[in-house]
Design a protein around this nucleic acid. Structure first.
Length: 886
RNA sequence: GGGUGCAUAGCUCAGUGGUAGAGCGCCGCCCUUACAAGGCGGAUGUCGGCGGUUCGAACCCGUCUGCACCCACCA
């Protein structure tokens, strides 16, 4: 007998008895992963004749480590690619990382700050060198986590968005866009982060409701005054006009004249502009062209001066009492000064309004007039929208398409320059006489006195937008580009639909002659805690996936994540659920252990159905159904459904019913046992292969042991043989119903599960005679007795199976239960009768439905007859209870 | 301000017109020789409220309430 103390099995064809009774993930995971990598299973060959299947990793930030959300995403991608690999595709699961410009720079700057230094102390070159150093130190963390998770990526192709090849891609696309007039430089209002000291794009701004103070200020004097309202009083220092609506009669007399701007000696014009809503507030708006995007536009329309009153850190620069104050200090100071002058007409506090914050550091964004580089997105975004509209790219789940369209159809030009040091430097050189030259990747930058390169770098998403092809070697026409572009599917979270997905669409279509970067966008949700709350470090509910992998194994973590993955929907996950998955992995382990102990085999051809028992035919029929079902779910990215289907098939049908029913066969030996051993081997072989993409480790360990095969990683994906046996399925369902019914009866009677009960089992006419031995074993029935007979009507040939459980009857309990069942059956009969008596129903309901109702009525009638008969017999069998009944 | 989605068992969620489901949790009995990380049995829901369509509604329509998320230049 095997004891828990046995060492774990290793390698193919381990003696079955060597398998310990519990699965220990740590014993196999690392070993197996290294074996897979060494054997090159994950290496994608661009010269292969096989059809390609490609998924690129959504590149994690090089600064970070993987959180549960990554583990989730990787599980899905890994499952998809593992299945395709088994299906015979040349599969590329492309790994890599993103340089994450602003995020990484911030991290390294924080490191420097600990040493009391700023990046300026190092200078640009040394700072960038320092970031590379940081990357070298922390980048390995992510790949380590990916290995633990089992990600079947092609490590030989690992890329980083700052790699030389990828820099060439960036320069190439920049040059093309520049030459096509799709990149331009312009001075505009941009979102400026006064802490990061860089421009950020619209989507890097997060709006939150902040409490502010809305003050109303009187500009001008007497009859010629008007009142404007603002939450940013300090910007009034930069006002260069007041705007009113052209048809607003209240202010008609002022348009074209000027009013004096309080706290200054400036007179500013009153202009009429359609943008102003006369119904809002006083209908008069202060105009600060250099510090507000709307005002900027108004200023442009009216030729107003743009007066910048703040520096890059948000400090007031205009001479006077406010000079040097930061914007928030200035705000109070300005209000105080205005109040002193009697200019404050009204205050509303608190006043809640949406305020933009830097998505990286949460600092309040300051709109700022600034010279930046822009991508003219109009033609690109239209193409990106059309590719989805005309079906060349499918978004899954399709409800998410509306979000995508909402964005690509209303896109503003994209500000791509960042005042950072870490990133792809803008490949533009400026000459001494104002020349502007965009330098392509193979071109020499202009040399000579007075030439210098633009100091800005590109938005991170500029390079990650090229990821589906830059990783393959583009702009060279490499074999990999030919083979693996377009990618097959993009698997990513809905949260970066705009940041990343839309950019890849725009760049892919533009760079690759109208070929979209992927055929399908499969969007998943966000991982949440067990109560559906967002995971965050500050809230304290964030989980390090490594902790759970250590405790329960990678398979358990993966299975839990896959099981929660309904398309586009957030995934709650708790430790309890990981335990449940661990239990499942252990169950798979033990079921295989049972099979090996009983000589299950995959040798030789599968016996033909004519030779097989109904039990064997049933499980093979079910197996093939599940293969088909799994395929359908995979093709629809229904990870939760496929995991659940496999879970229930494996545990309930194979590991419980089939294994239990087989025990009798194995015990009896002979030809039937031989056949069943082959069937059990087949069922486990296929089930392990079906499970492998989701739980790769335990399935590999077991499959190689069971089959002696090289590796399930490169085994064939199961195919539906088409074998179905409805008759056998009905027969086994009947057995299950009977067994369940009698078990329930036993439990109700207080009989202990292990207690052998004298009983007769009359299966005459049921067609279930072949299962008598198995049922006796499952039901712990002994030789015949006499006395009370409990019966259950089976849907097989309408015959009755009679069970004799003499001496084991608690009459009161049984009467109570039978009475309850009778009431239920009578209710069912009444319900079905009502329905079948309803002419409208009969006229309109489909035949299938009517037949179903008829069948239900028939069953109810049979139940009533049976229960009535049982109740009638009950009082005569007043034998005392035996075994635990009270 | 606009948009989208969600409200189903104690918790987290499946279920797109025909007898209400899963996992976890809960109750009871069992170490039945693959597995106690297990086995068997059981309880639990006016499917958010109100109307409507339909022979029939968790599901379709309207409406109300409560959440969530996304987008947005009303000072």
């Amino acid at each position: 007998m095997t004891e828990n103390t046995q060492p774990p099995a290793s390698g193919p064809h381990a003696a079955p008895a060597d398998l310990p009774t519990q699965y220990t993930p740590a014993d196999v995971e690392g070993k197996l992963y290294e074996r897979w990598v060494e054997r090159g299973y994950f290496t994608a060959d661009a010269e292969s004749a096989k059809d390609p299947y490609t998924i690129v990793i959504p590149p994690p930030n090089v600064t970070g480590s993987l959180h549960l959300g990554h583990a989730f995403e990787h599980t899905l991608i890994d499952a998809l690619t593992r299945r395709k690999r088994m299906q015979g595709y040349e599969t590329l699961w492309q790994p890599g990382m993103d340089h994450a410009g602003i995020a990484t720079q911030n991290v390294v700057e924080r490191e420097l700050a600990k040493e009391g230094k700023s990046r300026h102390d190092l200078g640009r070159e040394a700072f960038v060198e320092r970031v590379w150093q940081w990357k070298a130190e922390s980048g390995g963390q992510i790949s380590g986590q990916m290995r633990r998770l089992g990600d079947g990526v092609d490590w030989s192709r690992e890329r980083f968005t700052m790699d030389e090849g990828l820099s060439r891609a960036v320069q190439t696309i920049f040059k093309r866009l520049f030459d096509d007039d799709l990149i331009y430089r312009a001075e505009r209002i941009i979102n400026w982060c006064p802490r990061c000291l860089t421009a950020i794009s619209d989507i890097e701004v997060e709006y939150q409701d902040d409490e502010g103070e809305l003050v109303s200020i009187r500009y001008g004097e007497g009859d010629d005054s008007l009142v404007v309202a603002t939450t940013r009083a300090e910007t009034m220092l930069g006002d260069t006009a007041v705007a009113v609506h052209p048809e607003d009669e209240r202010y008609a007399h002022l348009v074209g004249r000027t009013v004096r701007l309080p706290l200054t000696d400036r007179e500013i014009p009153v202009v009429a502009d359609e943008h102003v809503d006369p119904g809002f507030g006083t209908g008069a708006v202060k105009v600060t062209p250099a510090h507000d995007p709307n005002d900027f536009e108004i200023g442009r329309r009216h030729g107003l001066p743009q007066l910048t009153v703040m520096d890059e850190r948000g400090n007031i620069t205009v001479h006077g009492p406010f000079q040097g104050l930061d914007r928030f200090e200035a705000r109070s100071a300005v209000v105080a000064a205005l109040r002193a002058e009697g200019r404050i007409v009204a205050e509303k506090r608190p006043y809640t309004h949406a305020v933009g914050h830097c998505s990286r550091c949460k600092t309040t964004v300051e709109p700022r007039l600034s010279m930046q580089w822009w991508v003219k997105v109009d033609p690109l975004a239209r193409a990106a929208g059309d590719a989805v509209r005309d079906g060349r790219v499918a978004i899954h789940p399709k409800e998410m398409s509306s979000r995508y369209f909402e964005w690509v159809d209303n896109l503003h030009d994209w500000c791509i320059s960042r005042q950072l040091w870490w990133g792809h430097r803008i490949p533009v050189w400026y000459g001494p006489d104002g020349e502007v030259v965009c330098v392509g990747p193979d071109e020499e930058p202009p040399a000579g006195e007075g030439w210098h390169q633009d100091t800005d770098v590109l938005d991170t998403w500029f390079s990650s937008g090229l990821w589906p092809f830059s990783t393959l070697g583009w702009p060279e026409r490499t074999e990999s580009v030919e083979k693996f572009y377009p990618n097959s599917v993009l698997v990513t979270g809905y949260d970066i639909l705009f940041f990343w997905v839309a950019r890849m669409m725009m760049f892919g279509l533009y760079a690759m002659d109208g070929t979209p970067p992927f055929h399908t966008i499969a969007l998943h949700g966000m991982v949440r805690d067990q109560f559906g709350k967002k995971m965050s470090k500050s809230f304290g509910n964030a989980v390090n996936p490594l902790d759970w992998m250590d405790a329960y194994g990678s398979d358990a973590v993966r299975f839990t994540l896959a099981r929660g993955a309904n398309p586009g929907v957030d995934v709650p996950i708790g430790e309890d659920w990981v335990q449940a998955s661990r239990n499942f992995a252990n169950k798979v382990w033990n079921a295989t252990r049972f099979a090996l102990l009983n000589g299950a085999t995959v040798e030789g051809p599968l016996p033909s159905p004519e030779e097989l028992s109904a039990t064997d035919r049933w499980i093979l029929s079910r197996l093939n159904s599940v293969v088909a079902e799994t395929d359908a779910y995979y093709d629809d990215y229904q990870f939760a459904k496929l995991s659940d289907a496999l879970f229930h098939f494996a545990w309930d049908e194979v590991f419980d019913w089939y294994v239990e029913l087989s025990k009798t066969t194995f015990a009896a030996g002979g030809r039937p046992a031989e056949l069943s051993r082959r069937v059990l081997g087949e069922v486990l072989d296929v089930t392990l292969r079906l499970l492998h993409p989701v739980i790769p480790f335990v399935t590999e360990e077991l499959w190689t042991t069971l089959t002696g095969g090289e590796s399930v990683v490169v085994a064939d994906w199961p195919a539906d043989s088409g074998f179905r046996d409805a008759e056998a399925e009905r027969e086994i369902e009947a057995v299950q119903r009977l067994v369940t019914e009698v078990r329930r009866f036993r439990a109700d009677q207080g009989l202990q599960p292990g207690q052998r009960v004298p009983a007769t089992l009359d299966l005459t006419g049921t067609g279930l005679a072949a299962h008598e031995e198995a049922m006796r074993a499952l039901l712990r029935l002994q030789a015949a007795g006499d006395g009370f007979t409990a019966t259950a009507t089976l849907p097989v040939g309408g015959a009755t199976v009679a069970l004799d459980l003499s001496g084991a009857i608690d009459v009161a309990a049984e009467r109570k239960r039978l009475t309850k069942d009778l009431a239920a059956a009578e209710k069912e009969l009444a319900g079905t009768n009502a329905k079948l008596g309803n002419e409208a129903f009969l006229a309109k309901a489909p035949d299938q439905v009517v037949d179903k109702i008829r069948a239900r009525r028939a069953t109810a009638e049979e139940d009533i007859a049976r229960i009535t008969a049982q109740l009638a017999r009950l009082p005569q069998t007043l034998a005392g209870p035996v075994g635990g009944a009270s």
